[in-house]
């Protein structure tokens, strides 16, 4: 196993661990807004790390451009999806006031 392959493996394992953290947070966190943090965030870095490891393994332009596209799509679309779901969650009253230290949005709407 060459040095680059070792680095690639390390990236992929790290990425998998971030995915696991997202899974744990998803089952463990108490309300939907906290769960969404876990879902969009470590997940993005986790996927990027796996893609990076993948790119280090292939090392040719055709595959790397594909991997760059996957990463770029993920980075541009994840926030939009998160915002859509988060907004609907808040508007349908799924947030838990007991878990919020400050809620300025509720203060405004009142």
């Amino acid at each position: 196993m060459s040095a680059i392959d070792a680095v690639a493996s390390a990236f992929i394992v790290a990425g998998a661990l971030f995915s696991l953290a997202a899974g744990v947070a998803l089952t463990r966190f108490p309300d939907i807004l906290s769960r969404m943090h876990a879902a969009t965030k470590p997940q993005v870095l986790g996927l990027l790390l796996v893609l990076l490891g993948c790119a280090l393994r292939f090392r040719n332009t055709v595959d790397i451009t594909t991997l760059v596209l996957i990463g770029a799509f993920q980075l541009t679309t994840a926030p939009v999806a998160a915002h859509m779901v988060g907004r609907v969650a808040y508007r349908s009253g799924l947030q838990r006031p007991d878990l919020l230290v400050v809620d300025e949005l509720a203060d405004r709407d009142r």
């Binding site: 992929i12 995915s19 986790g46 796996v50 893609l51 993948c54």
Partner: peptide, 9 residues
């Protein structure tokens, strides 16, 4: 996302 990561790996 996990499936995408798995296929890439």
């Amino acid at each position: 996302a996990i499936i995408v990561a798995a296929i890439a790996a």
